[in-house]
């Protein structure tokens, strides 16, 4: 379970992760306590599979979810189908209140660019709206959905080409910051007080 320098698997270099994320070394070590809890929920293997990810981060127990799949893929930067601690920490860093707005804009753009074409197309927006309504039990007519999407594209698609590119997305969210609300988890600031047991395993003095 441990490597030669006696650090737990996945937490080999907390200082490097702290330098490359918004978390401090202590916060990285506390985040590892959260990671251990999530990664042992179904299979205690030190890795987060999609089922554990869905249970922990979305509180839904359905077989398939468009957003769970998309968010999991964005966390899974090594495309292995499972998340190691480094991937988990780097992705969650974007959701920290202190993360750069540009990083949140980039992540949210990729989240909504379902087909990863470099732009968000109308059909993708409709698919996401229909999925959201279905998951939340809301029932809106197709006319109302089309109207919402029309209005959204009137606001966002300033180049009038039927799609939203990254520049248009950035302009839209800067005009409407509430669209990034789902990109910030305020409680990540409390990670060390929520998981104080990290101090028993800490191998570094934080600065």
């Amino acid at each position: 379970c441990c490597d030669l320098n006696n650090q737990p698997r996945g937490l080999e270099d907390p200082e490097l992760l702290a330098r490359e994320t918004v978390f401090s070394v202590s916060e990285i070590e506390a985040l590892y306590e959260l990671f251990k809890r999530i990664s042992s929920a179904v299979i205690d293997d030190g890795l987060i599979n999609k089922e554990e990810f869905q249970l922990a981060l979305f509180k839904i127990n359905k077989k398939e979810s468009l957003f769970v799949d998309r968010v999991f893929d964005l966390f899974d930067t090594k495309h292995s189908g499972i998340l190691g601690f480094e991937e988990f920490a780097r992705a969650l860093s974007v959701f920290h209140p202190n993360a750069l707005v540009d990083d949140k804009i980039e992540f949210s753009f990729q989240l909504y660019d379902l087909k990863q074409q470099g732009f968000i197309e109308r059909q993708e927006v409709k698919q996401m709206v229909v999925t959201t309504l279905a998951e939340s039990g809301m029932n809106l007519s197709d006319d109302v959905i089309e109207n919402i999407i029309n209005k959204t594209f009137e606001q966002a698609d300033t180049k009038h080409d039927g799609k939203i590119d990254k520049e248009e997305w950035k302009n839209l969210v800067l005009r409407h910051p509430s669209l990034l609300k789902n990109m910030t988890l305020q409680y990540l600031k409390d990670i060390t007080t929520t998981f104080p047991s990290f101090v028993f395993h800490s191998q570094v003095d934080d600065t």
Binding site: K59, R70, L111, I148, T152, L179
Partner: peptide
């Protein structure tokens, strides 16, 4: 011709944000 229904106030991405929201709050409850 008058527009019949109420004006649409919600942006599609506000709606989508409801489903695409991560929720780790259960781990942070005191």
């Amino acid at each position: 011709q008058r527009n019949s229904g109420p004006p649409i106030l919600i942006n599609a991405f506000q709606l989508i944000g409801m489903s695409s929201c991560l929720d780790l709050s259960g781990f942070f409850e005191k």
